[in-house]
Amino acid sequence: MDILLLVSIAQSILAATWRMATPLIYTAIGEIFTERSGVINIGLEGIMLIGALSGYVVTSYTDSLFLGISSAVLSGIISGLLFSLFTVTIKANQIVVGAAFNMIGTGLTGFIYRTLYSGGSTDKLVLDTFPSIKIPLLSDIPFFGEILFQQNLMVYATVVLVPLAAFILSKTAFGLYVKAVGEHPKAADTSGINVTLIRYISTTIGATLAALGGAYLSMAHANQFVEGIATGRGFIALAVVVFGRWSPWGAMGASLLFGVFYALQLRLQAMSGNVIPYQFLQVLPYLATLIVLVSLKGRGAEPKALGKPYKA
């Protein structure tokens, strides 16, 4: 196989990598905030679906991507507040509430989607998505141009999101509070930090970013909502948080790693003369992430109070 062909294949795989990693980055970064504050939200899949649907519905009725994104954010805030109400205030078991969110998210979005769109005209079904923005000059750079500088706004936003999240967590007072509450809520409480408030805020940030991750799928990658569109990404994001050791940069790395192998396996399937069974190729992203996790030995960074409701 000649070099030029290989380069072009690598180029399209890498461009796909970032697109496939984006929803994971959003959702995982959000979950890092949630978990760092000591709350575990396994309802990400459901919240992604809720975000995907609300963004899609509002965009399809108003033709405004801005309003669509805003409504996805709003749906994330509502989900986050609800989740906090049950887990922080009422102190219900976080895993159970998370599981409930997954079921509600799947059922509710399916129900609303069918109610609004069944039997109606189909012309409304397809959205004009975020267009890919070619950054002048940079997008003409050979090889890297297409990978890095011809994506859409929501993909570019991850470049801001990750350092911002890292900065907030490590350099701001709020970040310190979040970590304190997640490590030792009693001590944090004694020193005057409002544990409940911090957990509410962190959980809501988490849910909002998960909703955005979902909205990316229905508004910026695909151009429509389909039932179950998240297809397990909410659960993969949960794993990404652990693989990334609760650090935004780590989560980004894990998401990209997952993305590159996902893009690679699709490409391998599509290549002519592929004889490897597709079931094996589909395992690749999971296998690769697992291997990296095992080989990257290091201290665990799991928040000590993770999953434990705080009783003052």
């Binding site: 399209s12 796909a16 697109r19 929803p23 799928l217 990658h221 695909a222 569109i229 699709l266 599509a270």
Partner: peptide
């Protein structure tokens, strides 16, 4: 259900 993966597969 993975409409995004279907799109990426077709792009490949």
């Amino acid at each position: 259900t993975d409409v995004a993966a279907a799109k990426e597969a077709a792009l490949s």
